[in-house]
Amino acid sequence: MPNPPLKEVVYTPDSLLLRPRDLCRSMMTDLLSSRGLAWRLLMRNITAQYRQSMLGYLWAFLPPLFTMLVWVFLNNQKVINIEDPGMPYPVFVLTGTILWQTFVDAINSPLKIVNESKGLLTKVNFPREALILAGLGEVLFNFVIRAVLLIGLFFWFNLAVPVTLPLALPGVLALIALGLMFGVLLTPLGVLYSDVGRGIMIFTQIWFFLTPVIYPMPKTGIAAILAQFNPVTPVLITIRDWLILGASSQIIGFWLVTVGAIIFLLLGWLLYRLSMPHLIARMSA
């Protein structure tokens, strides 16, 4: 019986971009074939994370819950003076912090999972997309758990559910895509230099205060200008509006940022693939 012809792979020093069609095809096949492994890695990370813990999933609730309580307390005591956001302030802060945390998780996820998987990357040839997908899965998982908190608060304040509520889910996906885009683009450099990881940590903290997360969109001053050019602003505000108010004031910005994020996310994927063999050569075995 004649055997089917064997799949032949050629490794040369040439840039993979010289054969764009082959590159695109292998990116697609790897993405598809990495689903099983990504799921397995996701399950591994989540189970391992919570199995050695008594409070378990409660840990996912606690940070946004406490952040909310702190800001509500500060606001009640008039330590800070925040304009009326047009909805109960606790709901406003909690949605804001949950969305912001999801965005930051998405930024950190690719670099974190690649750094954790160095041992695997230097030893086994597996579709590298699996790492990014597994990280993405964890971001989504954490968001879903926190969203439960939000549902609780909806009942607490007896809020009416707007018709736009189902739109919030694709909105969150757009927000994650935006975060993932930054994360993936920074990953190659971040694997080489630890400065990138530290930089992300500090920068996202500053960014938090410059984004209308715990306060509504500022109307005047430098804060207003900064918020205007901040890509997170329209996405975050739109999702929050869809969740609670119904109509959104920033819909154009939302679409611009989303389309841009998807384009740059694809470019980041390309960069990730092109740089991987070079990064592995620099990782310790």
Partner: peptide, 30 residues
């Protein structure tokens, strides 16, 4: 195929199985 050559070429046909690292991806808690 983990790293790229700087000169020359490598052609590999068929599936590669590597007994390089045993237990890749093991998580101790599981």
């Amino acid at each position: 195929g983990l790293i790229k050559p700087d000169r020359g070429s490598i052609t590999v046909s068929g599936r590669v199985g590597a007994l390089i690292e045993l237990g890749a991806g093991f998580n101790p808690i599981l």
